[in-house]
Design a protein around this nucleic acid. Structure first.
Lengths: 123, 123
DNA sequence: CCTAGTGTTATATTTTACTATTACACTATA
DNA sequence: TATAGTGTAATAGTAAAATATAACACTAGG
């Protein structure tokens, strides 16, 4: 797994798993790979994976059953809430950043539209 | 200055100064505060500030004159290029993140529009 | 020429994330 | 009941960022 060296690995693992849950790659109630397997999958240490999982458990998205495994919550409202929260966080961040670069609301919207239209193309 | 503990301080300082240059708070050719003063301003160490400055110098945005100070480049094209680059980086990041949450191009655009319309308001 | 202010660099120390390794607690099942 | 697989936690070590502090190199101005 690719890691951005500017951001803690445990944080990136957490985000990665959240994405899998939100996109349905991991279904509600589904068992996650074991912590040891996850560590191999993402090429990180068990403790680092555990740290990521601990935060997701504290957030109620993952349920931990000792001796059995970790499971995605069955409460789908928690998952939809998580998605809303992640999307909003991303929007707030990019808005704040672009606004700090003196782009007006209109320019921000236009720049996003422009980016989507031109993405993947040579300039 | 507020620091996000998930991102290296030197990196945040660099970004902060870039924003000041792009918004014109620091004009082309203008002298920056001394590294020692900057360290006080942003509540960080001189070496940390210097690391941020070194990268900006390497990028050609800041010119260093030993014994005199650090100065914003007079080449305004470098500044506009920097702005373009920062904006594009932000757009690419948020697009990738939202796309990874299974939002379509249309949904991404709509969510940005929606965010701008509703920002600062209760839900 | 001297001094104050500037950028630059170096050393030692602290802090934190991460790793490697081991051990412990629990569950299911053969 | 023994064993393999699971989560959990502790210990010790490594690496990188950040700090405190000091020194060095240069410039401008008195």
């Amino acid at each position: 797994m690719y890691f951005d060296d500017k951001i803690p690995i445990y944080y990136q693992i957490k985000n990665h798993i959240y994405h899998e849950i939100i996109t349905g790659a991991l279904q509600p109630g589904e068992k996650l790979p074991s912590v040891r397997q996850l560590a191999v999958d993402v090429t990180a240490n068990v403790n680092t994976v555990q740290r990521a999982l601990s935060e997701m458990i504290a957030a109620g998205i993952i349920e931990s059953k000792r001796g059995r495994g970790n499971f995605v919550t069955m409460e789908t409202t928690k998952i939809t809430d998580l998605k809303t929260q992640l999307v909003t966080t991303q929007l707030a961040h990019v808005y704040q950043q672009l606004h700090a670069l003196n782009l007006s609301d209109e320019e921000i919207l236009a720049s996003v539209q422009h980016y989507i239209e031109r993405k993947g193309q040579a300039k």
